[in-house]
């Protein structure tokens, strides 16, 4: 190294003050954005807790609704949600996975499959009340299922199927082409490649998507009000053709009562619903993280 080279000196300080100021302003804008959304969520939780926590008790979970606030509980709504969501899961898992595999592995890439793809993505954006009204006319009246658990589950399935299909397709796409080729080269047919190679690797992603879709379904009020139309239910469904209520319906009903005490009940109902949702999302995140670390091994 010559002395001349060694003695060179470059200006390494920030070149312009303006650039630095801009970057600080941008940072503050981002901070505000996260602050607004977080404060909103936090104040909601605080407000709900303040109103609802005093009403939360074991008997709130195990009693039927009543016009006496101190006796009222949401047993029928909780059990109704369990029934409807279980049937929704039974419908969306096979149908969603089947549709995803068809589109990814079987469908020829032509105009028709492209139209189907665009349609599925767009369906995810249709307002949920539209699905409610569709379910009401098709499942409740036309198919004669009545205002039943099954009609509710079918409606919610239509609502969340696009989510399941989109997420499942993404999970299927993450399986390396080289694994499929290796299986084909060993004499596997397409079904064996799907069943033995792609499915095992895609299933964590599919499960995550399914759980997120179901947690969306649990929180849906509008289509369920259209289907069930029942708010004061003092029995638990015993078969898929029974009438039902679900948690969002119960909460909606309590909130619309004139008496102040019912607002407390509604808040307590919201807490139960929120805890259920957070638990489901946490499960989905857990599954995702666990499989991420495993595939990095």
């Amino acid at each position: 190294m010559t002395d001349e080279n060694f003695n060179k000196q470059y200006d390494l300080a920030p070149h312009s003050r303006g650039r630095r100021t801009k970057s600080i302003i941008f940072y503050l804008l981002l901070l505000t954005a996260i602050g607004v959304s977080f404060t909103g969520l936090l104040s909601l939780i605080i407000e709900i807790s303040r109103e609802g926590l005093p009403w939360l008790s074991w008997h709130f979970l195990t009693e039927f609704p009543s016009r006496f606030t101190e006796k009222a509980g949401m047993k029928s709504a909780i059990m109704g949600t369990v029934w409807v969501i279980s049937f929704t899961a039974l419908i969306i898992i096979p149908v969603g996975i089947g549709a995803a595999f068809y589109l990814e592995e079987y469908a020829k890439k032509n105009l028709l499959s492209k139209i189907i793809e665009i349609n599925i993505s767009n369906l995810a954006g249709v307002p949920s009340i539209v699905y409610g009204l569709l379910g009401l006319s098709v499942f409740v009246y036309y198919m004669g299922l009545g205002r039943s658990v099954l009609a509710g589950a079918l409606t919610l399935s239509l609502l969340v199927l696009p989510i399941v299909i989109v997420v499942s397709r993404e999970a299927i796409r993450t399986v390396p082409e080289s694994h499929k080729q290796a299986a084909y080269a060993l004499g596997a047919n397409r079904f064996q490649v799907v069943y033995k190679i792609i499915l095992p690797q895609a299933i964590p992603g599919i499960m995550t998507g399914t759980i997120l879709a179901l947690s969306r379904a649990i929180g849906e009020a509008a289509p369920m009000i259209a289907i069930s139309a029942l708010v004061y239910l003092t029995f638990v469904p015993t078969n898929p053709l029974d009438r039902f209520s679900v948690m969002p319906i119960q909460i909606f009903n309590w909130i619309s009562r004139p008496q102040d005490e019912f607002r407390g009940l509604a808040a307590a109902g919201i807490i139960v619903l929120l805890i259920t949702l957070i638990a489901m999302n946490a499960l989905a995140i857990y599954i995702r993280n666990r499989t991420q670390t495993r595939s990095e091994e």
Partner: peptide
């Protein structure tokens, strides 16, 4: 049969990798 450019074992055990072709057939 075919062996590829980049090693592409299945994300399974060593045994299951070799047994795969036997099992599916």
């Amino acid at each position: 049969g075919m062996v590829f450019q980049k090693p592409n074992p299945f994300p399974k055990s060593i045994f299951d990798n070799v047994a795969f072709g036997l099992k599916i057939n």
